[in-house]
């Protein structure tokens, strides 16, 4: 009997998710033992045409990482959906839009302008931009079309499960794979569609080892602006920590070394818009007497959009009015 087929794909992402899979270390051998790896561009030499040639639903499990921001990403999202029984949005970009989602405050044209013209290290007096099609003697070369709007995987295709994190933690990845392997071997039901796998059901605060007390913020600080204190809740120290609005599962790794949670595991159950929720939470604990003082404190938030929506802008309720 042939082994079930496994695929992994890298769309608009940094590559960290690919590395993260290797965080499962020697367990990767168990994956290879239980699955037939049929497509994994970063690790194996299969081509798109190999996938195109497969029957629908031939792949059992596809881990799709990265957001969808160009025509190639979108094509592959549709293709892998068609060929896979289980499509998993793997990592913050696929699940939430991730850091590429922050591009949604600009248009594609603006981004190109910045990269090819306004960039201080670029000299481009002739305004040469990459073109999507180019004729060469050997034939036509093409580049994917860059979209104005970056989308999470489930804004493009039907997604079965989510594994959050930037990147997902190794032990969590293995836990998910182990469960699936277990079900394949011993039978049993897969979790309900839409389940967030490889994460908890509370917030990062639940795993964070720091001591939490009542919070009253009189000013926001950056991590290097406060004396080293491994005990006190970072938020209580005035450092914006997304822990209270972020799903647990990472083990509180960032906060344990004095860095605030950035929110990569996405919102906890029951919360739709992670950034808006953080605003609501922070606004509740700002300690000020007057509107002027509140404004003064709020002005100390470094990069509000990038802080509150670092991973979640694409999926947030904030949508661009027009492009």
């Amino acid at each position: 009997m042939s082994k079930p087929k496994f695929a992994m794909y890298w769309a608009a992402a940094c590559g960290g998710c690919e590395i993260a899979v290797l965080q499962i270390k020697e367990k990767i051998l168990e994956v290879a033992e239980n699955f037939d790896i049929v497509f994994w561009p970063v690790a194996t030499d299969f081509k798109y045409k190999d996938v195109e040639a497969m029957a629908d639903g031939e792949i059992l499990l596809t881990l799709f990482n990265g957001a969808v921001r160009n025509s190639e990403n979108e094509y592959m999202a549709h293709l892998l959906r068609q060929k896979s029984q289980v499509l998993v949005a793997f990592g913050a970009c696929a699940a939430q839009g991730g850091i590429p989602g922050l591009a949604n405050v600009s248009t594609a044209a603006e981004i190109k302008e910045l990269v090819y013209i306004d960039n201080p290290s670029v000299q481009n007096p002739d305004r040469v931009f990459p073109v999507e099609r180019f004729e060469v003697p050997e034939g036509e070369l093409d580049l994917p079309h860059l979209y104005d709007t970056v989308r999470a995987l489930d804004q493009v295709e039907d997604v079965d499960y989510y594994i959050p994190g930037c990147p997902p933690e190794g032990p969590q990845i293995w836990a998910v794979l182990e469960t699936i392997i277990g079900i394949l071997k011993n039978g049993g039901d897969l979790p309900p569609k839409g389940t967030v796998l490889g994460a908890g059901t509370k917030t990062c605060c639940d795993e964070c080892s720091r001591v939490k007390k009542e919070k009253k913020i009189t000013g926001f600080k950056k991590p290097w602006e406060v004396p080293w204190d491994p005990e006190t809740c970072l938020l209580e120290q005035g450092i914006i920590c997304m822990g209270p609005v972020t799903r647990d599962g990472c083990g509180g790794r960032c906060t344990s070394v004095g860095m605030p949670c950035r929110g990569c595991y996405g919102p906890p159950p029951g919360v739709t818009d992670q950034g808006a929720k953080m605003l609501s939470t922070l606004a509740s604990i700002i300690d000020a007497e007057s509107p002027e003082k509140i404004a003064e404190i709020a002005a100390t938030v470094p990069d509000p959009l990038g802080t509150f929506y670092r991973f979640g802008l694409a999926k947030s309720m904030l949508r661009r009015a027009k492009v």
């Binding site: 639940d206 939490k212 007390k213 822990g243």
Partner: peptide
């Protein structure tokens, strides 16, 4: 079962 014990609400 759902509360993470972050203390945000306690002081408010």
């Amino acid at each position: 079962e759902k509360c993470s014990g972050c203390h945000i609400c306690v002081g408010l």
